[in-house]
């Protein structure tokens, strides 16, 4: 199926081309973001493949539909940039990638924590500059410290398990506590108590407590 792939980066082209070897779709790679002024690049494509920052509002969807597109394949989990009411009105369809690698995200959160605590980016810049002083780069042992995890879906659970492996005390908040984590010693608390007790807080929830509010305002 002829598919216009918007917001294409070199890595998208590499992996989508490899994945398409068996499928045999006709992929048209477009570097531009999908917007009203680039929608013409999808002319004649029954399907469009889009990413997180592509615009799929009413005017774009109508223009796509008028030019023959009826399917949107989001290559991400989120679809908050797609105006679903217009999709339904036009009889189009939208699919997404609900999960790709929970380990990738949890491990990056750990990478950020370690880099921040031990100031790895600053240390590297110093050494690159011939400055071998360590003054100002002191961190703390994470072992024995309290780590709060807000949201214990798949990613939050993996992050919590990694922190248990570090020897941290792990607190969690979620509307649905994970019994397997509780069995491993993770304590679920109201979010205010979690914040008050945690030296490290990592966010792994999909949405805010209420519309227009933040977990840490």
């Amino acid at each position: 199926m002829k598919t216009a792939v918007f917001s294409t980066k070199p890595y998208d082209r590499e992996f989508l081309t490899a994945g398409n070897a068996a499928a045999g779709h006709e992929l048209v790679f477009v570097e531009n973001r999908l917007r009203l002024d680039t929608v013409a690049l999808a002319a004649g494509c029954p399907a469009v493949c889009a990413f997180v920052n592509d615009v799929l509002d009413g005017p774009v969807l109508r223009a796509l539909h008028a030019a023959g597109t009826c399917f949107i394949a989001m290559r991400c989990a989120g679809y908050n940039n797609v105006e679903l009411a217009v999709v339904r009105e036009l009889g189009m369809q939208v699919a997404r990638v609900p999960a790709y690698s929970p380990y990738a995200v949890a491990e990056h959160a750990v990478a950020l924590l370690l880099a921040l605590n031990r100031q790895v980016p600053r240390a590297w810049w110093r050494v690159r500059d011939g400055n071998f002083s360590i003054d100002g780069l002191m961190g703390v042992d994470l072992h024995g410290k309290t780590v709060g995890v807000i949201g214990t879906g798949t990613i939050g659970r993996i992050f919590a398990e990694i922190m248990l492996g570090f020897g941290c005390r792990v607190l969690a908040y979620d509307v649905r506590p994970d019994e397997a984590l509780e069995a491993r010693g993770v304590r679920y608390l109201p979010v205010e108590d979690l914040l008050a007790q945690s030296l490290v807080v990592s966010l792994h929830c999909r949405c805010c407590p209420r519309p227009g509010t933040c977990w840490i305002p």
Binding site: C49, A73, A95, V97, P98, Y100, Y103, A104, A109, P121
Partner: peptide
């Protein structure tokens, strides 16, 4: 410390994104 929305960006995740997207196109 800020990184540019790269937490998802591993070889395994890209392979899964590609495979699922192709499956979605096949289904449609």
């Amino acid at each position: 410390l800020v990184t540019s929305h790269q937490a998802f960006f591993t070889r395994e995740a890209m392979q899964n994104i590609s495979a699922t997207t192709m499956g979605n196109l096949d289904d449609f």
